[in-house]
Design a protein around this nucleic acid. Structure first.
Length: 850
RNA sequence: GCCCGCGUGGUGGAAUGGUAGACACAGGAGACUUAAAAUCUCCAGGCCGAAAGGCCGUGCCGGUUCGAGUCCGGCCGCGGGUACCA
């Protein structure tokens, strides 16, 4: 008997699968299809444990479906455009294209030893001109259907580097490289009309039954449907009213000011003659553009000096303020402030000495708001104070509805349904992305490139001179031979659009492209018809909103343009969001108390070489800066892919984070070596049959089939693996005859095969199995073998467990009650008291209530 | 700030509202061995107790229920997202 050599076994079986070509996805008339997809990786250059976990989970599903007789599509590609490639080129010379394709080759090389059941013939990268050319064709189709348009929008502008910054590149309001204070700048940019689909994207969430409820809820909140009202407030100094939007118009009595956005036309107009207002607006332009920064920033405002009339009590004049917290993008860019019923308004009012006036009280608590705003839930009952529509005691929702009705009847306002979801700005002022295929012509305006001229390919150099990425800004802007072109419509001199597309565009339709990666149109209908939808999509929870929402929009838009069948407008039938892989970090503090991280190999017995004690912090997200990255390549070299695969599946439920531990990996290897040993022994066993032992083993085997199958189908991989440990232990100790043991061992090899495919092939062949276990039909549990004649019932007295009885499984309730009450431990704990009630849950529990 | 999660032994975790701690790691005891490694067997939530057994226990406080890790309300801590990181 030889010992378990992962390296040998894994190379051998990967070659066998390759030669048999069993993972090539083929359309089949007589097999059901199954499309399993993991979110494709960004080619950073190294695979990490998170990738191993993600792709192993997908592989378990893909291999399981292969063995249940499906025609499986399990592809892999690269989300290859993006900032890091440009940053690398900026930092160390070189070209984003070379950097990216080099990384792809490296990562493919690191990934292949994992033994994933991927159809590599379908591989593509989003930076392949064949891919982004089709994306440009989609853009032109979207343009034709009115799904894309141009408007102005603000970006982060670095005034020193003269370049647009991503939010990530803005640190504490300053440019990450220049350190200059970042400004907002307005540019004309392209937008997808995703907001036209707000209602549809919201409603369709209900149908996504196999998505996590939390993801659907996050998307629902993101789309943010609200019913409110637009109310014009008459200006005392001018004709045009200021229209405010409110979802809580029932608080109207408490309105004490109105606040408008710094971008509001009225703000701009008034700023012309008011330098201090202009200065305030300029100041707000220095803020981060992120929502988090805006919300957390101190709420500031400035009195414009103008006033408006309260729409219900026109004698009340309300001051108009410009507030840095009012968003121009949402509603009308103007709100009325009701300090008594909104904490932010209250803080604002206290700061600037504005009036605080209640619109309602809580029943029986008639007191005015002082430091804490009274913000009732919509279902909560309040007592309105001289409500104009005569509402007294009512829930807030009733108050809101009555208010909206009253305003509409009087013609003082218009009920409105609004969505928080904004249109998707796709323009990026960067090189390494998909060029937006339009041309700007002085005579014809914005003209789409002709489809026969696609792809509009990124220039690699400029007339043989390499592009210089060390100069900040978009190199396409200073690339005349690419930028200057002829108008596709009139042929006059024109300028190519130099903005490229957001990388979210690339990842919004790749799943569709995988169904026909060689097609000379974005998709090929017959392939899309066969393979769509993705039956199981797997990826990180960090994509719960943007990527998934954009993909849902894209699928709809592609359907409208005839690139996807109607059934594919919700492209992902089932979604699973997996957790991260974490690892402990080794930390000391420098003399200023800042953390310093250390590599594991520099730490011995909790100390550095110089004796400094090191603090060990568990469960930190793996990152280079924290020096806690475990490279899967090292693990595969030391223990083999099967060990890495088994470990990332075994130690935590898939939706939760898993902590990588060296000890855990070693223990996994020992376990796999043990299975190899046990099965090798069984293969040479000749013991005679033993009826009762054979029967007992068979029962355990069917139980294992049942539990492992259930685990694999419901993403209970860790639970499935626990069952496999149990079944291995039973098999090792079983006194059954050789035939029964061999049968059980073959089933063990099959049940393990989605997780440890190489070892399973080896076990299968050692046991004399024919062909590849990867192609073997998945075993089916015999229901009759799963039940026992007797059940063990715990007996509780007042909810505390006191005894246990074993009774026939079909014994009737009265009989069970009798047996339970007769139990000595129950009698002791009753201590002569008469039970008030006895609850018997058949097959579950008995509870005696005293 | 706002939205969404998560919190169970020394550790990772298991548990359709029904015996909390399956399975595994680390640990302890033993077998085998000249010895070590490897392997095998057994023990193991905490406290009290010789044992039988008892009490406590799923982040904290409260509620619903015959029964709550699980459902509801309120806190605390951690994580993800927050529209130009992918």
């Amino acid at each position: 008997m030889s010992r378990y050599s992962a390296a040998e076994i894994e190379a051998k079986w990967q070659k066998a699968w390759d030669e048999a070509g069993i993972f090539r996805a083929e359309r089949s008339r007589d097999k059901p299809k199954y499309y399993v997809l993991e979110m494709f990786p960004y080619p950073s250059g190294r695979i990490h444990m998170g990738h191993v976990r993600n792709y192993t989970m997908g592989d378990v599903i893909a291999r399981y479906r292969l063995s249940t007789g499906h025609s499986v599509l399990h592809p892999m590609g690269w989300d290859a455009f993006g900032m890091p490639a440009e940053n690398a080129a900026m930092a160390s010379g070189g070209h984003p294209k070379d950097w990216t394709y080099g990384n792809i080759a490296d990562m493919r090389g690191q990934m292949k030893p994992l033994g994933l059941s991927i159809d590599w013939s379908r591989e593509f990268a989003t930076c392949d001109p064949e891919y982004y050319g089709q994306q440009q064709a989609l853009f032109i189709d979207f343009l034709e259907k009115g799904l894309v348009y141009r408007k102005n929008a603000v970006v982060n502008w670095d005034p020193v580097d003269m370049t647009v910054l991503a939010n990530e590149q803005v640190i504490d309001g300053k440019g990450w490289r220049s350190g200059a204070e970042v400004e907002k700048r307005e540019l004309t940019q392209w937008f997808f009309k995703i907001s036209d689909f707000s209602e549809e994207l919201l409603e369709a969430l209900d149908g996504l039954e196999n998505w996590p409820a939390k993801v659907r809820l996050m998307q629902e909140n993101w789309i943010g449907k609200s019913r409110g009202i637009e109310i014009p407030f008459e200006r005392t100094d001018a004709d045009d009213p200021i229209i405010c939007y409110s979802t809580r118009p029932d608080t109207m009595r408490g309105a004490s000011f109105i606040a408008i956005s710094p971008e509001h036309p009225v703000s701009r107009e008034l700023a012309k003659d008011k330098p201090e207002l202009a200065a305030f607006i300029a100041e707000t332009r220095k803020m981060d553009t992120t929502e988090a920064a805006m919300e957390k920033a101190e709420k500031k405002g400035i009195d414009t000096g103008i006033t408006v009339r309260h729409p219900v009590w026109p004698e009340r004049e309300l001051p108009v303020w410009v507030g840095n917290f009012v968003l121009m993008d949402y509603g009308t860019g103007a709100v009325f402030g009701c300090p008594a019923h909104d904490q932010r308004d209250l803080d604002f009012a206290r700061k600037y000495g504005l009036e605080v006036r209640n619109a309602f009280y809580l029943p029986g608590q008639e007191k005015d708001v002082e430091t804490e705003a009274l913000v009732p839930a919509k279902t909560e009952t309040v007592v309105y104070i001289d409500h104009f529509a005569g509402v007294g005691e009512a829930t807030s929702q009733e108050g809101i509805d009555a208010t909206i009705d009253w305003f509409e009847e009087k013609g003082l306002g218009t009920g409105q349904v609004k969505y928080r979801l904004r249109d998707w700005g796709l323009s990026r002022q960067r090189y390494w992305g998909c060029p937006i295929p339009v041309v700007h012509c002085e005579a014809c305006g914005v003209v789409p490139e002709k489809k026969e001229n696609l792809p509009v390919e990124l220039p690699y150099d400029e007339g043989g001179t390499p592009i210089d990425f060390s100069i900040p800004g978009n190199p396409l802007d200073r690339h005349p031979s690419w930028r200057d072109c002829k108008c596709p419509s009139c042929g006059a001199e024109a300028r190519r659009e130099t903005d490229t597309m957001d990388t979210f565009v690339d990842s919004s339709w790749y799943f569709a492209r995988f169904t026909a990666p060689d097609a000379d149109t974005p998709t090929r209908m017959e392939d899309a018809e066969y393979w769509m939808n993705v039956d199981q999509y797997i990826g990180g929870i960090e994509h719960a909103i943007l990527h998934l929402l954009y993909s849902r929009f894209f699928a709809r838009a592609m359907h409208i343009c005839g690139h996807l069948p109607e059934k594919a407008i919700e492209p992902f039938d089932a979604l699973f969001t997996q957790g991260m892989v974490t690892h402990e970090i080794y930390q000391t503090k420098d003399d200023k108390g800042r953390p310093v991280y250390h590599l594991p190999e520099d730490v011995t017995d909790g100390k550095l070489a110089d004796g400094t004690p090191v603090e060990v912090i568990p469960s930190a997200k793996m990152s280079k800066s924290k020096k806690n990255v475990v490279d899967p390549v090292n693990i595969i070299e030391a223990f083999g892919a099967d060990t890495a695969r088994w470990f990332v599946l075994s130690d935590s439920p898939p939706e939760r984070d898993v902590e990588w531990t060296a000890a855990g990996a070693e223990a996994t290897f020992k376990h796999l070596a043990r299975v190899y040993r046990i099965v090798s022994e069984i293969a040479g066993d000749t013991s005679p049959a033993n009826a009762s032992e054979d029967e007992a083993l068979a029962k355990d085997m069917h139980r294992a089939i049942h539990d492992v199958t259930g685990g694999v189908e419901s993403f209970g991989f860790n639970a499935a693996i626990a069952k496999l440990y149990g079944f291995t232990n039973t098999l090792a100790k079983s006194g059954a005859g050789a035939e029964a043991k061999k049968a059980a061992a073959k089933v063990l090899a099959q049940l393990m095969s989605p997780m440890t495919p190489h070892l399973s092939e080896e076990l299968w062949s050692v046991l004399g199995g024919e062909g590849l276990v990867a192609q073997e039909r998945w075993p089916v549990a015999d229901e009759a073998m799963l039940t026992d004649d007797n059940v063990t019932l715990p007996i509780q007295v007042n909810g505390k467990r006191r005894a246990e009885i074993s009774v026939p499984k079909d014994m009737d309730k009265a009989e069970v009650e009798k047996v339970a009450l007769a139990h000595e431990a129950v009698a002791r704990s009753l201590d002569g008291a008469q039970p008030k009630k006895v609850i018997v849950v058949p097959g579950r529990i008995v509870n005696v209530v005293v």
